[in-house]
């Protein structure tokens, strides 16, 4: 099998710490949902006006559901956002391990291969198609 070099950069400790801070902030906001849910009941304008959901429709509800341990509900609202929510929870211990020097920082590539790019775009489009079916009906 042929080896190929892939250029990339390791994330620095400041960047890792900031990623951890974003994850913790997201978790804290979602966990405090009970405090603001009555005040911020918002219908997506694209859905209200055009009858078409935007790619982020249901994302807030999905992340909040993840933080409340209701994974199936979260996946129903917005599968991609639900996975991001799960990722935020999982990332916290990894950030702690990297900052504590027990694990090397992840590497960010300088470019993505065609397969990787296509896969990411396909996941995004599939998620939107699901939302069109879920909210469109």
């Amino acid at each position: 099998m042929r080896s190929r070099s892939v250029a990339g950069y390791r994330l620095g400790s400041v960047e890792i710490a900031l990623v951890g801070a974003v994850a913790l902030a997201g978790i804290a906001v979602a966990r405090s949902h009970a405090l603001w849910r009555d005040r911020f009941q918002v219908v997506c304008p694209a859905w209200a006006v055009l009858g078409v959901p935007c790619p982020t429709c249901g994302a807030t509800r999905a992340v909040v559901a993840v933080m409340q341990g209701e994974l199936s509900v979260a996946l129903a609202w917005n599968p991609l956002a639900a996975l991001l929510g799960v990722g935020a929870v999982i990332s916290v211990p990894f950030v702690a391990l990297v900052l504590g020097g027990r694990m090397t920082a992840p590497r960010v590539p300088t470019s993505l291969g065609t397969v990787s790019r296509t896969a990411i775009i396909a996941v995004f489009v599939a998620n939107w198609l699901y939302l069109l079916r879920y909210f469109g009906g």
Partner: peptide, 16 residues
Amino acid sequence: MDDGGEDVVPVDIERP
């Protein structure tokens, strides 16, 4: 694994 099923050997780039 990236495209083509090749082994990927990550390298760090110098930051000029």
